[in-house]
């Protein structure tokens, strides 16, 4: 294979294992990969090269997507450490957070029914700052190697993201 598909995304892009990656390196490497392996560069090449180019760029795109997105990147960092949140029970048992979830859901339902743009905008800003709080939380816990606790922060982030997506889809 032309690139090492067994390397994790951080290795592939030569980045440090962290939420705060150097985005300049990420962008530059991504463009370099694309400029060399995108199918556009292989329109007149053999089928084998075309297939390789397709596989490589798909892989690069997946890696880029994960590394660009704080939530996906956080999950991926934990996965490398052996904590696969995707295949885990994602229920949150913290009762005060459950209350908070219910309240936010109600607020979101109300905004959906009102269809007011400004309200919606404000709500997105609020969701973002709440999410940011747990993102920072995650960082501290991850760096202190408290991976169980870090998983918990991600699950909470996930809740805000799902509320955001629902609102985007139905609002």
């Amino acid at each position: 294979m032309a690139i090492d598909f067994n390397q994790n995304f951080f290795e592939l892009f030569e980045l440090d294992y962290s939420v705060d990656i150097n985005s300049e390196i990420l962008e530059k490497k991504y463009l370099n990969f694309q400029k060399n392996f995108h199918p556009d560069k292989f329109v007149n090449a053999s089928d084998y090269e075309k297939r390789m180019s397709l596989q490589i760029t798909s892989h690069i795109n997946e890696a880029y997507k994960v590394l660009k997105n704080d939530y996906l990147k956080s999950m991926y960092l934990l996965k490398i450490k052996g904590y696969d949140i995707d295949n885990q029970n994602s229920t949150i048992s913290d009762p005060s957070f459950l209350m908070h979830q219910m309240e936010l859901r109600e607020e979101s339902d109300e905004i959906m029914s009102k269809k007011n743009k400004n309200l919606k905008k404000d709500f997105f800003i609020k969701l973002n700052s709440l999410k940011k709080k747990f993102q920072d939380d995650f960082k501290i816990k991850y760096e202190s190697e408290l991976f169980e606790e870090a998983s918990d922060s991600i699950k909470k982030m996930k809740f805000y993201i799902s509320i955001e997506n629902d609102l985007k889809r139905n609002g």
């Binding site: 294979m1 032309a2 690139i3 030569e14 390196i25 530059k28 490497k29 370099n32 990969f33 060399n36 392996f37 053999s46 084998y48 090269e49 390789m52 490589i56």
Partner: peptide, 18 residues
């Protein structure tokens, strides 16, 4: 072809020195 691609990757990596 694979090796050529690989050696090319290494060139890219060299190209973007930290």
């Amino acid at each position: 072809v694979s090796r050529r691609m690989n050696s090319n990757i290494q060139k890219i990596m060299k190209g973007t020195d930290i």
